[in-house]
Design a protein around this nucleic acid. Structure first.
Lengths: 300, 300
DNA sequence: CAGATTTTTTCGTATTTCCAGAAAGGTGTC
DNA sequence: GACACCTTTCTGGAAATACGAAAAAATCTG
């Protein structure tokens, strides 16, 4: 149908921006005559001159200027296509699915996601909030690519990368009975009061999950519910400073001290994946960005 | 450098959308083998298959789907470039400069401009408000392409297209003395009260301009000033219903009857241009759109 | 103003790319 | 199994594109 529009337009742009056929030829690694040919092709195809030739500089004609923007758009789009294709050829994922433990620092995660997505517009991202309970099954089933979670020890078929430690402490609204005790909490205190617990589905067997201390447990499958329940003084939950950062600032909730270090576990947060299906280049880059984001958050 | 990306991508898109190499070949007026060749080229260049071949239908692979959007973007941009180039070759303007008489119905003009610009994104538009006084000089000097104006008769070196008629009547705020007279205005009434007059530059010779009835004249070079002066009852001006449509609806200003038809001139609005430099295709289309907009406004 | 210099175009040619038609291989249908 | 339909492969030729050399045009220099 039509000759190689993209390369011709690239020549057009290079000549316009450098003002010279020979400089354009050098930057594009092509012969001068080839550049001249490309421009001649374009101009015959358009039916009018694009450049006003000068011996020292060549400049756009009026109509050339009118087309210049569209010319750049074409080559820019072509560049994106080929670069995306190259990245896919390197094994880049078309989609990244991650499960995030509810106590993982969300602010840092979203900072990392923001910079990530600015560089990879076309990647489909799926985020699932999750408690520790069924993460491994999701990973083994291949329904997610990697998990951001707290672990004491990884299962044998998993591997991962550790970030920093966070401390989980019982958290309540400031006017909750536990907050008013005036002394470090004991296990009995926590058992007596209602605990709010994240569970992604009602079918989870509550006998098998971890970190359930109380005998009176309410569950929710969305952090927004948990946030409101805690703020309204309905119960207590384990949380790190990150999740309630704003409410802590406003004096709405409080992280409570415990009498025994066992009661406020310090855990390492990490990314984990199936050892025989490691994340691709994009997944690894995202993990790196998350590590950076966690570090800068810790530093600030 | 690289083969004819655009045509190959067009083949890719056609096959994807029709699901068949042969149908795609028919719609693109190319041989089946050529389509196959294009796809093979693309796939070797990408390094991975874009389509999962089926005997009945061919469908995108996962990575093919990831690239499809960008592929469409490339050919869409290329199409825009060539269509714009073709339009420029037909003599289409890269820029349209129009002068608009202050009493020209602005609502209709802007309706026309809106539809116009939606079809010609890259055209540079320059609008100048103007009174009749120096329009012809601007046209002759080539500083504008055509004028939208009221005329009794065109100068000999001009030609144009007439639209409908509008009536200019003295207009004031409802509490202005002229509005409270309770009888049709006479020339003496209008001479006695302050007239507000549009003048694009202070250097205009007020002796030579038309439609100045009063001995007490204020001028402004922006319709926004005129609108406020009238609404605040500072004076009267000639106006059609169009300009004060909203204020008429809200009962803020009133168009006043005159004792003599001479005092409320009915004029034909029209587009005018220099006979030996007619508007190009785009200018003619814009004039047509303005005519349409004026008609539908009259009809409604 | 002649000559040196730089830049662009033209020209000839080699190479690559592209297309159409024929042949071949597959798959599903009757 | 014959038939219809589709895709790929093969092949020859046509078109497009690259390069270097040479010519042409403009500029700079002394």
């Amino acid at each position: 149908m039509q000759p190689n529009l993209v390369d011709h337009l690239a020549a057009f742009i290079a000549v316009t921006e450098t003002g010279s056929f020979s400089v354009a030829a050098r930057t594009l690694n092509r012969a001068v005559s080839s550049i001249s040919y490309s421009l001649a092709q374009l101009e015959t195809q358009c039916g009018f001159p694009l450049l006003k030739r000068g011996t020292r500089r060549s400049e756009l004609t009026e109509r050339g200027r009118a087309l210049f923007g569209e010319a750049k758009a074409v080559v820019e789009r072509a560049r994106r296509f080929t670069s995306h294709a190259a990245s896919l050829e390197q094994g880049a994922e078309t989609r990244i699915r991650i499960a995030v433990d509810v106590v993982f620092p969300h602010a840092a995660l979203h900072r990392a996601l923001k910079t990530f997505i600015s560089q990879h517009e076309r990647v489909e991202l799926q985020i699932f909030n999750s408690s520790l309970n069924n993460l491994w099954d999701e990973l083994r089933a291949g329904r997610i690519d990697f998990a951001l979670t707290l672990v004491a020890a990884l299962p044998l078929d998993m591997e991962g990368q550790s970030f920093r430690q966070i401390v989980l402490r019982p958290t309540t609204a400031v006017d909750h009975p536990l907050a008013l005790l005036g002394r470090p909490l004991t296990l009995a205190d926590m058992q007596r009061e209602r605990q709010i617990y994240f569970v992604e589905s009602p079918s989870i067997d509550m006998e098998r999950v971890g970190r359930v201390f109380s005998l009176d447990v309410w569950t929710a499958n969305d952090l927004e519910h948990i946030r409101r329940l805690i703020c309204n003084g309905v119960g207590w939950c384990f949380a790190s400073e990150d999740f309630f950062a704003e409410e802590l600032q406003n004096g709405i909730v409080r992280l409570l001290p415990c009498s025994d270090a066992q009661l406020q576990p310090s855990r390492t947060i990490s990314a984990a994946w199936l050892a025989d299906r490691r994340p691709g280049p994009l997944g690894r880059e995202l993990v790196r960005l998350i590590a950076d984001a966690l570090d800068t958050a810790a530093g600030s």
